[in-house]
Design a binder for these strands. Structure first.
Lengths: 192, 192
DNA sequence: TCCTTTGTCTAGCAGTGCTAGCATCAAGCC
DNA sequence: GGCTTGATGCTAGCACTGCTAGACAAAGGA
């Protein structure tokens, strides 16, 4: 029994290694550079080993996305908890969101740009994704304004942040004015 | 001289055929299905012919993106011209933008999600892209509100629309409430 | 008519995600 | 302790990708 447990531990540890390596490689050189060959070489195993852990590359991306969702939810909640008052809270959340996207571009891509085979906005949406949305909803719901559904408001706010994050990252928007754009967004959208 | 002119015409016509075919294929089956082999087969030429018109696949995507930008600018201006008053105009623009994205998902991808090798937000940004932004700016500038730079306001509004468009398209947001989300966005962001 | 130039094609390269089938090594049984 | 068995990871290979070198044919000019 103990032997089997040890093997399971080792297997789980190798799975973490795969994910950490994929993530590191993606952050360093982009997801295009994360090929199964390169990934296998970095973890010092052969390619087929990857397929004994994940169905394919897409599932690896999905797993990294879930990791990212958990971290993002934590970052948003931490920012919200450290701020006093609704306005400061919403500002802090917006900054935390954009900051996360800027600091972890590959993870953000995995979550929202690439196909990780994850279900969104449906019943079988994985828990971390639901929770990341919930983290936004907790603080944004209170500034939705009268007669506006908190969920709908959060969706709009989130979409706006997502737009800023992706357009900035893709150099469609110059990154200098990020602060001013964020401030404008918060001031206009949130009802205090 | 006339012979050369005929050849140039034929060449230009074939280039249009390549772009139209690429776009059609992308809209039908997604950009992943637009391989150089398939594209060549559809236009009934061999692969290398594509490379006598474009440097590579990326440049084909870029060319489709420019086409799309021109069309989007026209769609936005048409919507603006058909509406009376600032509020109706902004609403119409938002709907036109999201409608364009929804009706031409592959073209929208070429413009904003994929790498078409185009420069954005810089001096050597191609004219159609600048003009598409200008089309938004023309009508959005007037509702930026006092003390807010029209360009900055347009960027934020655009980013919000972009977020809605991409998240809806990627099924991150359910498509039913698009109208309500758009209305909320317009009502909050635009200063009348 | 011959030669040159232009245009197009066939064939191939290096790389991709993914998999079938073989070797190896450790666990468990007699 | 020696043998069998099953799990585990490997090598080799498939069908595909974007892209290109070099052969070849068709057209134009002398």
């Amino acid at each position: 029994m103990s032997v089997q447990e040890r093997k399971e531990r080792e297997r789980a540890s190798r799975e973490r290694l795969i994910l950490a390596t994929a993530r590191e490689l993606a952050e360093q050189q982009g997801w295009d550079a994360v090929t199964t060959r390169r990934l296998a070489e970095r973890i010092e195993y052969s390619q087929p080993v990857l397929y004994s852990h994940f169905r394919g590359k897409r599932e690896i991306i999905g797993a990294v996305a879930l990791e990212g969702a958990t971290e993002m939810a934590a970052a948003v909640r931490a920012a919200a908890a450290a701020a006093d008052g609704p306005h400061a809270r919403v500002s802090a959340i917006a900054r935390a969101y954009l900051d996360f996207a800027a600091r972890n571009p590959a993870v953000y891509d995995a979550m929202f740009q690439l196909d990780g085979g994850l279900a969104f906005a449906s019943e079988d949406t994985p828990e971390p994704l639901k929770d990341a949305f919930a983290a936004l909803l907790e603080s944004l719901g209170e500034v939705a304004g009268e007669g506006v559904h908190p969920g709908l408001f959060t969706e709009v706010f989130w979409a706006a942040l997502h737009g800023l994050a992706t357009l900035t990252r893709a150099r469609r928007l110059p990154s200098e004015d990020t602060e001013r754009r964020t401030a404008l967004l918060v001031d206009r959208l949130a009802v205090l």
